[in-house]
Each structure stands twice: as structure tokens, then as C-alpha cells.
């Protein structure tokens, strides 16, 4: 655990040394803020539905840019070799990096608290649903981060890593959007694996164990693949 924290600490602080994190965070806040408030005033209703509705789309686009460097850069620079020859397991490396990216996403989500707070000033806000939606957003972002970390383990090229993560994220997002077009036997399956549908369940204010288990198993699965990819150097 001490090793995990060491990795996480280094990774988290190096986010603040790179312009990418600042840029992505800014772009996200500006975009979601602009899209949210423009409709808020048109509708004149004190609710967060618009904001939470956009979240899955915006997050699958921005998280790959926050996670692309995690392992790809270490591979490209050769620092991965030095790291993996220290007395630390591959799993600890993967977990530490994952926690660092979740940490950054948490900072981002914390900053967006400005939105519900301003809405609460204007009118009555459904606090329970908002808290649930934030928990849902954290789980969803962590899942995207795990997907991004996994993609980053496949290559030494950060752009490729980001594109793979975008592709997977898009797939999991769009599959929920297209449920209506699917044949009826396929629809439940699509709903089951869609990140989007899961989030909408939670954003309604109901935290269902099945949804939480879905996110946690997605995360675990991606981290396991990332670890296996790192380990595969020893089988070749």
C-alpha cells in the first residue's frame, strides 16, 4: 500500500506540472458551464438535469486526455523499466496510477460543485438526487479513467492511447443511446453494458447495488488487463 501511495503521489503531482491537465480541466469547466447555464436561464427551472445529461458525453471525451500519458509516456521515455525493476509489483504501479487519475477527476468534479451551489441559490434543488448523481459521476469517471489507463498500457504513443480510450468510451456510450434501435432481444444486453444508462439510473437518485457493481467490475477488469499487459514483457 505504501508503494501504491508513492506512485499515486508522484503521478498526481506530475499532473500539476503538465499543461494538459490544466487545459483539459479548463475546457471541461467552460464547456459544461456554458452549455448548462445557457439552457438553465431559458428554461428558468432550478434543476441540474441538463448538466448531468451532458456529463457522460463530456467525460468520455476528456478523460482519455488525462489518462493517455500514464503508462505510454513511461514506456516511451524508458522510465517504465526503471520503475518495474524497483521492488514494486506491476499491480501496485497500475493501482497507484489509477488512483492518481481518479484523484484528478475528483478535483475536477469538486470544481463543478459551483454549478449546483449556484442553482440552489436560485431555487429549490433536489439535494438527494444531486448527491447521488455526483457519486454516479465519480464512478463513471473512474471507469473512464480505468479504460484510459488500460489503453495507455497498450502503446508507447500517447495519441494512440487516447484514441483507443476514446473509441472504447464512445462504444460504451453510444450503445446506450441506440437501445431503441436495437432488436428487442439485444436491448437488455446493451442497457446492461452501457455506461450511460447506468449513470442515468443513479442520477435519478437511486443508487442501486447492481449499477455500483457494474462500475466496480468494469474498473477492476480494465486494471487487470493493464497489469497483464505490463506483465506480458516477461512471457515474450
Amino acid at each position: 500500500m505504501q508503494n501504491v501511495m508513492a506512485i499515486c503521489k508522484r503521478e498526481f503531482s506530475s499532473y500539476f506540472n503538465s499543461p494538459i491537465a490544466y487545459l483539459v480541466v479548463t475546457v471541461y469547466l467552460v464547456l459544461s458551464g456554458a452549455l448548462f447555464f445557457s439552457t438553465l436561464f431559458i428554461e428558468g427551472q432550478a434543476d441540474m438535469r441538463q448538466f448531468f445529461g451532458l456529463a457522460p458525453l463530456l467525460f468520455f471525451i476528456i478523460t482519455p486526455f488525462l489518462t493517455m500519458r500514464l503508462l505510454a509516456e513511461e514506456r516511451a521515455q524508458g522510465t517504465l523499466e526503471l520503475l518495474l525493476t524497483m521492488p514494486i509489483t506491476d499491480w501496485e504501479v497500475v493501482l497507484g496510477k489509477f488512483l492518481a487519475s481518479v484523484g484528478l477527476v475528483s478535483v475536477l468534479l469538486f470544481l463543478t460543485l459551483a454549478f449546483p451551489i449556484s442553482v440552489a441559490e436560485i431555487g429549490p434543488l433536489d439535494k438527494g438526487a444531486t448527491v447521488a448523481a455526483y457519486i454516479g459521476m465519480l464512478l463513471m469517471c473512474a471507469t473512464y479513467a480505468a479504460i484510459g489507463l488500460m489503453s495507455s498500457s497498450f502503446t508507447k504513443n500517447q495519441i494512440v492511447a487516447a484514441l483507443i480510450a476514446l473509441f472504447i468510451g464512445f462504444g460504451l456510450f453510444i450503445i446506450g443511446q441506440m437501445v431503441q434501435l436495437m432488436p428487442s432481444w439485444l436491448a437488455p444486453f446493451c442497457n446492461a453494458i452501457s455506461i450511460h444508462t447506468r449513470f442515468q439510473n443513479i442520477a435519478r437518485g437511486v443508487i442501486d447495488t447492481r449499477d455500483v457493481v457494474y462500475y466496480l467490475s468494469m474498473i477492476f477488469g480494465c486494471l487487470l488487463v493493464a497489469q497483464t499487459t505490463l506483465e506480458s514483457r516477461r512471457w515474450r
Binding site: 503521489k9 508522484r10 506530475s14 503538465s18 522510465t79 517504465l80 523499466e81 520503475l83 524497483m86 521492488p87
Partner: peptide
Amino acid sequence: PLYHDMTVLEYLHFVADV
């Protein structure tokens, strides 16, 4: 191969942690 975005002291502390 070293982390270019860290200072020498930060890096040595990181290695000491690991």
C-alpha cells in the same frame, strides 16, 4: 531514463518512498 518533470530532490524522495 528519469522523470524530466520532477526536481532532483522530488525524484530522490520518490525513489526513497518506493
